[in-house]
Design a protein around this nucleic acid. Structure first.
Lengths: 111, 111
DNA sequence: GCTTGACGCTACATTTTTTGTAGCATACAT
DNA sequence: ATGTATGCTACAAAAAATGTAGCGTCAAGC
């Protein structure tokens, strides 16, 4: 079962929401999954494909956790972000711009 | 050694910067470390303390990776974010507000 | 010059996560 | 009933993370 805000997590006893969030997002594939679902809903299998065939074991585990955290929900079209999930995904989306600048910087520096 | 943008990473062959970033941030403690350094520079030991005594093995590994990715650097005051690191940390900082709303929602729903 | 303390970090065995592959059960179409 | 797609579970192997001990360096205090 997923750790909810208010519960102590790895590296923080306080249950402070941001700490819980950093802990959840720091699990492998979680960020990527939110990113992909930000592009639109997807079925279990489509999601696997989008994520380079991540193992179904792990995918299912993450989907379960994200459901418990009310970030995603299952509907007609498969898995989709909830309202809150979308708000989070929008914030993640802004990282794309940063990442591009960052990559350009690393490249020019690496010469 | 850390994966640089342009290199294929777990779940993405393209080396697209955002994919590399999501992969790096999805490693345990990376997000937390950036968060803590966003509060200001810290020595190795101080950082360990701030992160609930994360193991030195892992801390060192992450610091090494983040240095290679030019997100942090070592200076007088210990480890500190670089310019780019700060820009990233500022974006992460906005997650705090979201996390609080999210926690409030979960709580009201959980009654 | 010798202890004392803090520092950055390495070694290494144990535990936890993640991965990859196989395949089951259901449903719907042919 | 045969083929195809779906969501998902089982399980062994591999990789990552954890926890503890402690080394080498430096600077301060005696």
């Amino acid at each position: 079962m997923a750790k909810l805000p208010g519960m102590p997590v790895r590296g923080s006893q306080t249950g402070r929401p941001i700490m819980v969030l950093l802990d959840v997002l720091g699990q492998r594939w979680t960020l990527r999954l939110l990113w992909e679902l930000g592009q639109g809903p997807a079925t279990f299998r489509a999601l696997r494909t989008r994520c380079d065939d991540v193992s179904p074991t792990l995918l299912n585990q993450r989907l379960k956790d994200l459901r418990e955290l009310a970030l995603i929900a299952q509907g007609e079209a498969g898995y989709a972000l909830t309202e809150h999930g979308m708000a989070l995904a929008r914030r993640l989306a802004t990282l794309d711009g940063w990442a591009n600048e960052w990559a350009a910087m690393l490249e020019s520096r690496g010469d």
